[in-house]
Write a protein that binds this DNA or RNA. Structure first.
Length: 526
RNA sequence: GGGCCGUUAGCUCAGUUGGCAGAGCACCUGCCUUUUAAGCAGGGUGUCGCGCGUUCGAGUCGCGCACGGCUCACCA
């Protein structure tokens, strides 16, 4: 078997050993988890993308079927109201209740978590990930966890012995792995287990706690632990999912290292082994701070894919997942160019080397890696765009194909680059353009330029290029100053393309119109 | 205090199994008799954070240390 070095294969190797004693008839399960209290963000995207790459590497090496479960913790209670959602006063009334039992603050779905789950599914589908969505609430209600819950209740003291030492002193005494949902007020964070009965899988609770200023209702009852009447606490929940679905692989951020360690010991108590785990680093913003889920700091997936090809984002996520990386716009162009470099290199790789190329992973195990032999890169397109000061993709592409005839051979990639660069130009460059008003003398020179361009009836770029030089010489103006005048007044910037080539491609009439338009505006602004 | 990551050119960072230290940007010089050029050609004396070790050979491997950052030490 070939010895691939890229990290998804290294992970797959570990998983192969882990999966040896699993039922070969069943798919090997991968999991990613989400907290539906907020909207999906780049961390979510990264986790699914990276897990998918390990999954594909594993399938390639092991030739076994796999499944990726995207698990949503929608039974978790609402602890505090997020800052970035509407109807916050309504939500405040529901603090302490499971997210799946709280109305949708956006008003369109059956519940708060249903809204977030729908967003998550939509988000992942947009990028074509293959996954099986699983709601925690549905899994509890359906009884998926009943067997595991029964074991946990029987071994509650052992679980307590693992968790309690990690808690603050005031929480140690009352802590119990199970969190009953109060059948009276519906809250899960205000209940306290008072007795438990492993022999019939029930427990007794009192709803007399407090969460963020909200008091329990005082209700007391005895309830079954099955079918969603009771959930288990966080680290126990994680172990329960691993146990129930035989999860063989799950990656997580470094902030969950300690949690994963505890969950691993809990599943050990339950009698199974934890999945292979991989720790990835957090994403940081430009100042090196962790990107928050609730605040829109740093670059979003949406922003990246609006202004650059999505493959460049995947390429970025492929690079060293265990290294903290700052995420801000300035890194994107380099990523795009590096990604294009991978495409250029790919066809020449030996079949044995190809699976270690980022392109192989990004394009579904090397299926459909597009050819790219042009020299055009994203930086080129951006520079050209700012020189041309145009919003016409066709014009830009014409220029590119003149510059590098090979570009015509890869129309899809070129078109995507231009479209994305144009989006960036429109949103960030164009609004900052300032068109200088010409002085009276300058205005005459420019109108002279316009007239001579209209009169010229040849097809020579060089002859067109000679016109501004003639005008500059005749009026005793340095050529460089005259060109800058043209750019500042007509294009709203201090640099630009060669006049001759620009005029030929844009069209004489269009250039003449632009000049006339800018020169007509009176200095007084009347 | 536990854990994780980092420290390589002015800046941002590559450096794959140990084998002559790299890229982009920035900056400088020159060129096309015709731009302040999406242009071309040149331009790098780097304590690879420090020390010790392994090795014929270490940016790379091992141990120790320093500095910076993040994360957990509430809760899920």
């Amino acid at each position: 078997m070939p010895n691939y070095r890229s990290w998804p294969f290294a992970e797959a190797d570990k998983l192969i050993r882990r999966a040896q004693d699993l039922d070969p008839a069943k798919p090997v399960r991968f999991q990613t988890g989400f907290g539906p209290s907020g909207l999906p963000h780049i961390g979510t995207f990264a986790e699914v993308a990276r897990t998918t790459w390990v999954r594909h590497a594993f399938e390639t090496l092991a030739q076994r079927p796999t499944q990726l479960i995207a698990f949503s913790d929608d039974m978790d209670g609402l602890r505090k109201v997020p800052l970035n959602v509407p109807n916050r006063e309504m939500l405040a009334e529901h603090i302490g209740k499971p997210l799946c039992h709280i109305p949708d603050p956006f008003g369109c779905c059956a519940s708060y978590s249903a809204h977030m789950n729908a967003k998550l599914i939509e988000f992942l589908n947009t990028y074509g990930f293959d996954f099986t969505f699983q709601s925690s609430q549905e899994a509890y209600a359906r009884g998926d966890f009943n067997e595991g819950l029964s074991i946990l209740l029987a071994k509650a003291e052992q679980v307590r012995a693992l968790i309690v030492p990690t808690l603050s002193e005031e929480n140690q005494e009352d802590w119990f792995p199970f969190f009953p949902i109060c059948e009276n007020c519906g809250r899960v964070y205000t209940t306290r287990v008072t007795e438990y009965h492993p022999e019939d899988n029930t427990l007794e609770y009192a709803c007399d706690g407090e969460v963020h200023g909200v008091m329990g209702c005082g209700h007391q009852a005895r309830t079954s632990i099955f079918n969603g009447k009771v959930k288990v606490g966080w680290k126990v929940d994680w172990a329960l999912r691993w146990y129930t679905y035989d999860i063989a692989y799950e990656m997580y951020g470094k902030d969950l290292i300690e949690s994963a360690r505890l969950s691993s010991r809990i599943i050990g108590v339950m009698g199974k082994r934890p999945p292979i785990g991989m720790v990835y680093e957090m994403f940081l913003d430009q100042e090196g701070r962790k990107i928050s889920k609730s605040v829109g700091k740093g670059l979003t997936v949406d922003a990246w894919t609006t202004y650059a090809p999505i493959e460049s984002l995947l390429y970025y996520l492929m690079q060293s997942p265990t290294k903290a990386k700052r995420l801000y716009w300035e890194i994107v162009p380099k990523c795009v160019d590096d990604y294009l470099g991978e495409l250029r290199r790919y066809p020449a790789l030996d079949p044995e080397q190809a699976p270690d190329s980022p392109a192989w992973h990004i394009y579904n195990r090397g299926q459909g890696v597009p050819a790219y032999g042009a020299g055009i890169d994203y930086t080129t397109v951006n520079n050209l765009l700012s020189a041309l000061a145009t919003d016409s993709a066709d014009l830009v592409i014409e220029y590119l194909e003149r510059y590098d005839p090979k570009a015509a051979g890869y129309p899809e990639i070129i078109r995507d680059l231009v479209d994305k660069a144009l989006n960036y130009y429109r949103d960030f460059i164009l609004p900052t353009k300032t068109y200088r008003k010409p002085a009276e003398e300058e205005r005459r020179w420019l109108l002279d330029l316009r007239d001579r361009v209209i009169e010229y009836d040849g097809q020579s770029e060089d002859e067109l290029q000679a016109i501004p030089f003639d005008i500059a010489r005749e009026n005793d103006v340095p050529a460089a100053d005259f060109f800058r005048l043209f750019y500042e007044v007509v294009l709203g910037q201090d640099r630009g393309p060669r006049f001759g080539a620009f005029t030929m491609l844009v069209g004489k009439d269009k250039v003449a119109d632009l000049i006339a338009q800018r020169c007509q505006e009176e200095p007084s602004g009347s």
